[in-house]
Design a protein around this nucleic acid. Sequence first.
DNA 1: ACCTGAACACCGTTCAAGT
DNA 2: ACCTGAACACCGTTCAAGT
Lengths: 272, 272
Amino acid sequence: MATTSDQTSDRTSDDVRDPDLVAVQEGPEAAGELTRSAGLDREKILQAAIDFIDEHGLAALTMRRLGSTLGVEAMALYRYVPGREDLLDGVVERVVETLWDDQDGDDVQIVDHSGWQDYLVRLAHGMRRIALAHPAVFPLVASRPPAAPWVRPPLRSLRLVESFLGTLCEGGFSDQAAVAAYRAYSSFLLGHLLLEVTQIGAQVSLLDQPEGDPQAQRETDLARYPNLSRTEPLLGQDRSAAEFEEALENLLDRLERVLHEAKNSGGDIGDL
Amino acid sequence: MATTSDQTSDRTSDDVRDPDLVAVQEGPEAAGELTRSAGLDREKILQAAIDFIDEHGLAALTMRRLGSTLGVEAMALYRYVPGREDLLDGVVERVVETLWDDQDGDDVQIVDHSGWQDYLVRLAHGMRRIALAHPAVFPLVASRPPAAPWVRPPLRSLRLVESFLGTLCEGGFSDQAAVAAYRAYSSFLLGHLLLEVTQIGAQVSLLDQPEGDPQAQRETDLARYPNLSRTEPLLGQDRSAAEFEEALENLLDRLERVLHEAKNSGGDIGDL
DNA sequence: ACCTGAACACCGTTCAAGT
DNA sequence: ACCTGAACACCGTTCAAGT
């Protein structure tokens, strides 16, 4: 996805073949084996797929290569996964699920939160952590068709939506306002995180393709665009983290305003 | 992308084979031919790819099928397009380019606009028109790696970014504020439009898979989620158009506030 | 100049056969 | 019970050969 197909297929077929198969051949009884530690398993396969995409990109993931990563022929995977499309759905599900485990202290705790603002902030940071940890997987989280039409990426599980709505309603939001908040919040998250992750992809693909003399290329490109070339130093700055925090705070302010107006004016607030 | 792989390959191979090849075989001199009217051409190929994706989905697009749509073997395409990846880049570029042609009156006119607010509104509506016209193409617009790291989808052309920045600067924005506005605006557009387009995909894939008894399925699913089942009628409503307009107006308000504060307090506004 | 046939290396997926 | 070999129908892409 981040490279042209030529490069992808050439490079990955080199990268992929060796690394883990060797370990298997060295001896099945060895202690520190990463792969095939105790027969296959749906979860093991999904995790291997995530690792593979993180390392080689989505386009390079094939059933055959994934199999060889696990020390097994591709056909063996079909015992645990109905097919490639379902595998990708499983990858998305599993990545989103990591919201709940192994938090380094101050991230999302879906239960045991204090107030809806706190919940929204933790959830946003948790999703952002996932996006940055798996930038090549996130586009799948963003654009696979969801289970129901009202499940809005990247908040892709019923459990998550339930806890979102529940928290806001406990916080004093009407059903209407909670739903409106869910919509605004998911748009905000999706837009920011997908942009951030796409930028990472762009950096990588630029490094892959020096494209002749980059300096000359850039100069001729920008010459025709005065505003672009004048503001280029500003545009080049990476403000993604600050941008994210500002947009998040702005959204929280808006929601707080909606909530208080609803309380003071007796309920009917239309729809955010 | 919207269907499982089984269905996609089965169905499309049926749909694709006949329609346009027949016309060619009827007689190359015939008047009303849609395909192969005067030899191939890069633009003709890109347009055929767009039509194909709109009709059959991205996953179904192969060089061979696209060729047969144009009355030609796949190998002939390589005279005009370096490969499949480049073809997709061309598709994205061409779709975004339709911002400027064939406007039905009140849409984007990149020149000859009156004020930056008007420009932003027209641009937003123009991009939304594109997304809804090509819902299966838009995910490509959203997530292909951009030419430069600071080109933010869906505003994917230097020309477009140039006109955006130029319009805002003419409107009184500082360089910093214009760049900040560009970032906020692109996040807003990307989030909303990708969500809208994903929902369309979800509807389609639901129709494809009745999944046994949908009524029973839904009931058992929702039983464990009280907030979800209570608000389900609200969640099910399609508010995408209104949502879009509200978010757009909210963004314009924010930008106007920033602009006026900057004027009154002598310039230094940090970064939006 | 423009297209095709044949070929190559690779896919996803199925299924009978091995252990 | 779990994996593999062989096979099938399809890919993207190259290139010599046809017209």
